[in-house]
Amino acid sequence: MASLEVRDITVRFGGNVALDQVSIATEPGSITGLIGPNGAGKTTLFNVITGLLPPSSGRVILDGRDITGLSPTKRARLGLARTFQRLELFSLLTVRENIRVAADIRRGYSKDKDNPAEIVEAIIDRVGLREIAEERVDRLPTGQCRLVELGRSLATKPKVLLLDEPASGQDETETELFATLLQQLAADGTVVLLVEHDVQLVMNICKSVHVLDFGQIIAVGSPSEIQTNEAVLAAYLGTGATTP
């Protein structure tokens, strides 16, 4: 079973501390939620985990291996995949081509030489993109773009999947479908770390939830624990929220 662990990650930008000794341990085969107010450092943490941003201190551990010094490319090849809050799709390509790029890249470095075209078709069916496979992605609504990005990251057959606000821009049906999909992925053994504004979604599908505020983890627990946690309420609602 795969596992991802973040130990004591600190990130400083100039004098500001964006992340302060953040530690997260994920459970294999389950979805871990990460929530927090704007500017709490969620996307920064994803950038650190995927290697796009070097941390000032701390370690990222994938399957027991310290990957802190590795490039984003090497990390991806070890089975780390992500989606982006600000969609980073290949806008000049079609849906199928977007996923194909990822499948081709995987074939280039991986030992198993599955036919990339077959992988792509399987993912298109799994994510439900068959009808729009030939569309150029820059003509799609955001909700579908989120699915394409998920499909693209699945083409690398990730062990650990980081999702940055995957439900934003999706309508309710899409979000429901998405939730089911994530639960299946987790059941298949993929580690899923989910950053999401749609608190309802997080509460519904996550086994444990971490709350980030001012770059610090202020609470960890099950969804129901989090919903009644005083520190969380304070972070979201202000200092005096619990004593109205």
Binding site: P37, N38, Y236, L237, G238, T239, G240, A241, P244
Partner: peptide, 8 residues
């Protein structure tokens, strides 16, 4: 606009 609702 504020996240610290109670303050405001």
């Amino acid at each position: 606009v504020e996240q610290f609702a109670s303050t405001v």
